[in-house]
Each structure stands twice: as structure tokens, then as C-alpha cells.
Design a protein around this nucleic acid. Structure first.
Lengths: 216, 216, 216, 216
DNA sequence: AATGAATGAGGATTCATTCAT
DNA sequence: AATGAATGAATCCTCATTCAT
């Protein structure tokens, strides 16, 4: 958790999705607290149950201070979604970069993703709920992933690392697998370790359902 | 559309998700109209934007009549989610039953699923939103699918139709693929035909990413 | 006061400026109470100080009941402005109809207007404030008066009862006189009787400022 | 426009309606900008729509600076109303002073007033709205006019320039005419020239509605 | 069964004003 | 003097649910 919090706190640096940029040190601290609090409130209670009061109380700020930095409830939510995209990709990229090839990378990526989701169950909820709160933000979120997957598959294809195929469809197939395995084994249930899930799914991603040719 | 509507209208027979069972013919008609209207309202506007007033107006009934048949807004929503599960499985089952083996069945099932989603975009939204409105109903929805997938995989495994593996994980991987391909190519965009998507994904499901061994 | 209240209560019959028409007797009573209360609240506190809570409390109704009959705060206000136009004209018309000619009619009309304003100080405020709350309603209000004045002047001119002149300008001159004498001697101060004011202003309206030719 | 702006800028000299008197040149400039901005903001948006933020942004000053010079939103507004009284009277007085007699003076005064209103539509709004924001300021505003009118009428009466009559009532009648003709032909619509309106209304002010005795 | 009026908790947002820097 | 962050009271409006008819 600590890691993400630190990142959320630093959010205004890179992405600056918040409305108003604070000019003083005090302002910077308030904004950070507010962002942190919003993430927690939305994550725990969901968009519609979440309240601005809840956010400012968590942040230890006055109600009005929220509107010093954000235009509306929806705007923070969108900012958070966008931020989660960066966090997720960063987390995964750091863990995948050493993979020798795409097939291994997919297994490691899935493992990393499940770990990420597990570490930030609440925050991850924000992304998923975006489909019903800020659909365009949700599409954007996955559009970036699609892009990355397609590029990775294309490169791997050129290298002969993977079987030729329809990269866009495969990209979405992989995304869907990741998301649902993340939901099932990351959010809902910890019974299997991320590595176990990734190993099992990795076999499927690598070889599909077709039985191995019988050894002679 | 007509097909689903007919099904929704007949919903109280099989599943009886409504609170009160109407005793008169007039009551039966009102309930049917209400169910139909609720599906449309939730599907088009989403749970939170939907209103009981909107439902009763669509149904041409009085506001109070809603509560003659349902306990609450959430209850109809849950009923609808459950109903969608039946519809979806029925639709797919009818199309898959003739498949010669599991691998083909998966491809056909995906194609059928995308077609289903495309034919009922609005209604399908209800299922997805359930994750944030009635999480247990959402879990139940997928638990049934998981069960079916596991059974199918187990049977196919015993028959040697498919490669051995972790059926639960594979079930969720397949579900995730279906859901996201359905979202991407069913709800968001029609650029590819269901058959095209199913063919592309079918190859992936069958053989995974590993390149075919070089022909000698 | 009683008179106007009765009229406000009966408002929905003639003008029906309220949003929703009640279908039951109870509804009719609630609407009437609400209208009455809104008139009092706006009249006493002014548009911006007035609150929906204040209105419903005066009416002995629940907050939400306001929105059963009106779309918004502004809408009731507009309805009230429009209603005041009808009331004012009716009041004056009843008193002026017996006047033998236009010049006398103007004097009697002014007297009646001052009496009207005096009897309904609070309500009259609503009309004046409309200039800043619902300017179009305010313009409409006076457009009707202008129309009436012009017609009256035109008819009187044809009959040779009055001096020829620019009827539109004279209409607005007369309106302005009425309004400010009504404000000064009706709303602000009762030191002069309506008849006294009307007599003094009547002489001015009849003869202007030019001294009478010296009797020889 | 330039003229009034200059006057507003110089406002603190004569009337000193602001709370704090600036001691430095920089302060004087800030105050002037703030006054200018407040006039524009109130004039364009009306008292309730106007915001302190709007004023300071127009002035290019910080929010807090407003309170360096004014006690409250209402206070600036009152200052502006009072200032408008001076401006209006000055404008008219300059144009009327050469009139040969009261009857001509009234016509010229009306023409000047309409021109004034036309030149400063926005600012004039401030005066009118004062009735609902600072009623006493509004009364004071017209009390000064009443005083001037009564004095003028009294003097003219002694000189035999005008018909004897009730000067207070006639004063308010004249004020009302001016205000409404100013609103109708100055603020709302420019279709007639100020001179045309003044000519038409001048005839009415001079001779009233009574037809001229038939020439023998 | 059906109707539709009544209820009131709930929540986002605005903005004048204060105050620390 | 100037700045701008912080404050929180105030209020409009929505809507699921209840209930009398």
C-alpha cells in the first residue's frame, strides 16, 4: 500500500490531472492528502457511495478545500483512473523487463499484475468502476494497454518468438485473461499464489488447449 | 431484440425473481411490462441513472405499481442479472451443442457470445454493472460459468481432447477472454465479424503463442 | 390580503403556471398551500433570501412536496410574476371600467394601482424583483401593460378625448409614473391617501406643467 | 464609457466609499482597478451572480486584496450606487443648465438621462438592482433626486413658469417617467433616438393629455 | 390491483470571508 | 500591501420508498 500512496502523493508532478496547481508548500501538501483520501474513499466505498465529505474528512481538510483543487467529484475520479494506468504499467514494466522472450514475459506480467491487484485491491476497483462512471476514461485506460500489447506481439512476431496471428484480437484476449484472473485470484480470493496462477495460465497462453503430440 | 424481450416477459415463470406473484391476468401483464421496462431503463441509463419513475413510465404503469411487484430497485436489478445468466447460457448452449470437440466448442461459444452481446448491448451492460451494484449477484453469475467451464474442461480432459492443465485457472482465463472480446468487439465496435474474432481467438485458444515447430 | 390569497389559491385554474397539475383533491390543496407560501416567502424575503425550505415550512408540507408541483425555485417565481400581472390588471380594470373618459380613467387607474400595491406590498415586490431574477418575465409583464395603454390611448385619441401624441412613449411615461408613485406612496409610505396622490398626479397627467392661460 | 471609467477610477477622492484609504501610489492604483472591476462585474452579472473572485480577476489582483480595501461585497455595491448618483446628476446638470425654463429643462433632462443610461447600460443596472440589495441606498439615491426635483419645481412655480401643483407628487411622477423611459428606450431598445423620446414625452410633460382647445 | 401524492434523508457545489505567509 | 489557501455554512434538488385512496 505504502508504495502506491507515495505515488498518489506525487501524482501532481507527472500527470497533473488535478485542476488547480498549488503554488505554496502548504497547498501541495493539501492536494496530496486529498488525492490520497479520494483514492481510499472511492476504493472502499465505490463512486456512488463515496462522498466529498468522506474524502475531506479522511484528508483532515475542510469540505471547501476539495473544491480548491478539483472541479468536481467526477474529475478526481478520472484523475485517479488515469493515474492508476501509469502505476499499473510502471509496476508491470519493472518486473517484465528482464524476461527473455514474449511468452515468458506474458507469464511474468500476469504474475506481476495479480500481485499489483492484490496489493491495491481498493484502488483497482476504481479502474473497473470507471466503465460506469467515466466510460471514456475506461476506454482510454485499455486503449493504452492494447497499444502496448500489440506492439509487444508485433515485435515478438517479427523475432519469430511467437506464432503469427491477429495481434489486436490476441491483445484483447490477453487483456481479458489478465483482468479476470486478477479479479478472481487477486481481488476475490488469495487461495492460489500469483506465481501458481501465472504458471497455470502461462501454460495455456503458451500452448493453448491442444494436447501435446504423443511422444513416440 | 424480440427474442430477449419475449424471454424477459416470460421471466416470472421460470425464475420468479419478483417479489409478488400476480394472481390475475392483469397482474401478470403489469409485471411483464415492468420487467421489460426495467431491463430497458437499466440497460440504457445504468443503475444509478435509472429511476423507478423511468421504469414505470416506460411500462405505462403508476409509480406505486412498481412496489406491488418488487421490493426495491436493487431487487429488480438482481433479478435481471440472474435472468441474463440464463439467457446467455441458453443462447450459447444452443449454438455449441453440435460442436465435435471442446476446442471447436470454445471457438463457437465465443462467436455465439459476441453475437449475443451485440444483439443485446444494453442488456449486457446490466451484467457488467452488477459488479458495483450487487457484487454477490455478479459473482454468482460467473460462478455458474466457472462451473460449466470446469466441467467441460474436465470432461474434455478425460477424453484426451485437450491438454491437461489447471481447469479452474483455465476456466477464468477463458471467461476473461470471452468477456473482453465481447466488450471490445461486441459492445464497443463492430468492425470485425463475430466469426472473424472467434477465428483469431480460436487459434490462440487452441495453440497458444508458441510458434509451430518448423516443417522439415 | 384575503382577496389575493383566494386568488393565489385559485391560480391553477386560470393560468396553470405550475408544473404539475394535481389529480386529487388533496393534491389541489397542497398545491394551493405551496403557492400561497411561495408568494409570502418571496414577498417577505426576496428571491435570494427565500428558500424552498422556507416555502414548504410555511405551507406545512414536506420539502420534497415542493418538487412534486414545481420544477425549480425560479419556476414558481415566474409563475407568481405572471399571476401578479393578471391580478393587477383585474383589480384595476374593475375599478376603471366606469370612467367616463381616458383622462379620468387614468386618475382612477392610478388610485386603484396605489391601493393595490398598498394591499399587497409583499407580493408586489415579486414583480419588481423579477427584473433581476427573470428579466423576460418582467418584460412580458410590462409588455402587456404597454399594449393595454397604447390601445386605450389610441381609442381615446380617435374619440378626441385626448391630445394627439406618441402613444408608445406616452404609454411608458404613464407606466413609469404609476410604478414610481406606487412605490413611493404605496410601498414606502402611506402619508398621502391614494386618492390624494391620484388627484395631484391626475392634474399633471391631464394638463402637464404648462401654466393655465391667465383668465382675462 | 471612458468617461465613467475615469470617474470610477477617481471615485475614492470625492466620495471615499471604500473602507481603507490607500497610502501608497501602488495602493491607489489597486483600489482604482478594483473599483473599476467591481462596477463591470456587478453591471454585467448582477449582484448575486457577481463574485469577489470575478472582481479581483478582472482587476488582475489577488482575491485577498479585495478585503484590503473593502469590508464586504455589499459595501462596494453601495459605494457604487452612491457614486452612480453623483455621476448621473452631474451628467444631467451639465446638459440642463442652459435651459431657459423648467419645461424645457425637463425635456432636455430626459434626453440627457436616456443618453446617460444608453452610454452606461451595465452600470445603470447597479442602481436599479440596489432596490433589492441595499434598499436604503436605493431610497437615498432617489431621495436626492426628489429633493432636486422639488426645489426645481418650487422655484419654477414661484417664477410662474409652471402650473401650481403638488410638487412632491409631481417630482415622483417625473422621476418615474424618466426611469421607465430610460429603461425602455435606453436599456432595452435603441429604436428611437433620445431626442425623439424626449420630444414626445416633453409634449406630454408640458401639456398633459387634455386636447388643445379648438382653434377658432 | 392500481394510483399518485407525500416524504425527507442525502449530497454536491458555491462563495464570502479569514488568515498565515 | 499583496497573496492565495483554507474554511464551512448554506441550499437546491433528486429519488427511493411509503401510504392513503
Amino acid at each position: 500500500m505504502g508504495r502506491v500512496e507515495a505515488k498518489v502523493g506525487a501524482m501532481h508532478n507527472a500527470t497533473s490531472p488535478s485542476n488547480k496547481v498549488p503554488r505554496t508548500e502548504r497547498g501541495r501538501r493539501t492536494l496530496a492528502k486529498l488525492l490520497e483520501a479520494a483514492a481510499a474513499e472511492f476504493g472502499e466505498r465505490g463512486y456512488h457511495e463515496a462522498s466529498i465529505t468522506g474524502i475531506t474528512q479522511r484528508a483532515g481538510a475542510a469540505l471547501g478545500s476539495f473544491y480548491t483543487y478539483f472541479d468536481s467529484k467526477e474529475q478526481v475520479f478520472r484523475a485517479l483512473v488515469s493515474h492508476m494506468g501509469h502505476l499499473t504499467r510502471k509496476w508491470i514494466a519493472e518486473r517484465v523487463e528482464s524476461a527473455p522472450n514474449r511468452i515468458v514475459a506474458e507469464r511474468i506480467g500476469l504474475e506481476a499484475f495479480i500481485e499489483f491487484v492484490r496489493a491495491h485491491k481498493d484502488l483497482y476497483r476504481i479502474v473497473m468502476e470507471a466503465q460506469f462512471v467515466a466510460e471514456d476514461a475506461y476506454r482510454d485506460y485499455y486503449a493504452v494497454f492494447e497499444e502496448a500489447y500489440r506492439r509487444n506481439l508485433a515485435v515478438a512476431g517479427e523475432r519469430g518468438e511467437i506464432r503469427p496471428g491477429h495481434d489486436e484480437v490476441r491483445a484483447w484476449a490477453l487483456i481479458g485473461m489478465n483482468v479476470f484472473l486478477g479479479l478472481r485470484y487477486g481481488v476475490w480470493d488469495d487461495s492460489l499464489s500469483a506465481a501458481e496462477v501465472a504458471a497455470a495460465a502461462g501454460d495455456f497462453m503458451a500452448f493453448g488447449l491442444t494436447p501435446a503430440p504423443k511422444a513416440r
